[in-house]
Design a protein around this nucleic acid. Sequence first.
DNA 1: CATAGATCCTGTATGC
DNA 2: TGCATACAGGATCTAT
Length: 298
Amino acid sequence: MPELPEVEVVRAGLQRWVSGREIRAVDVLHPRAIRRQEGGVAELAAGLRGQTLRCASRRGKYLWLPLVEPGIREPESALIAHLGMSGQLLVEDPGAPDEAHLRVRFTFADGGTELRFVDQRTFGGVRVTALVPDDRGGRLPVEVAHIARDPLDPEFEEDAVVRRIRSKDSEIKRVLLDQTVASGVGNIYADEALWRAGIHGRRIARRLTAAQVRLLLAEVRTVMEQALSQGGTSFDALYVNVNGQSGYFDRSLEAYGREGEPCRRCGAVIRREAFMNRSSFWCPVCQRAPRGSTPSRG
DNA sequence: CATAGATCCTGTATGC
DNA sequence: TGCATACAGGATCTAT
């Protein structure tokens, strides 16, 4: 499932293969993929035709490419994409057969490779959106303005984020997944970072020490950087880079998906419990449960 | 305001 | 063999 490292791999692919190219046309094969587009297909097509894509940018799990018309320097809009849980952005030859879940096709004026948005579960989507000023004199898509900087952002404000996390009267895993606190973390890397830091996800954020929160953020950064260096995590080929290749960080996961297997640090059996309509995996020895938390299933 | 929970979506795996 | 159900989970919406 695409979290920050996977989205970053896709961003780099877009930068290499589609940045600098002029869009000729867009073909929407499934309306849900553009459900948040004001004005629907017509406005999407009008907003893209004849525009050139600028540098591929990312914050957390959002991706965008600013759009410029010939002769105009400052972009005022951008093509934005979110992969949801199964979205793919693929760069392919125009003659390649359509994927079963092809949702949107972008073709370019140069007649070269096309960009395809493929999404089985249709939680993701693309749209053209306005760029608005950010807090540092730059510009951001309006959808991204409320998303916090991610831990790999050079301008990530560690101290402020530690304070913000420790102000929350909520379970730490829930806070890690809150994209307005720090972005880019999803269910997999949350479990991995918590395991590495030796912190149970049900601990209340404001009861953690500043040192514990600092350690947790350091582990978030470490696990994401490792995943990125291996091309991201993939379980079922739903996540791929723009060339359709999977990463292999899943071989390095220590907690996520390892229910019933031994903890690689202490040998205890990794546990699993339902959490926010998904699952949490943790080591009952390395990650002590908070008082009053009910042990799950025995 | 802060926090918790439901909802969207479909292919795959599992149980009866 | 077929049908029903559980599961994967990011963002957003509603409820408290």
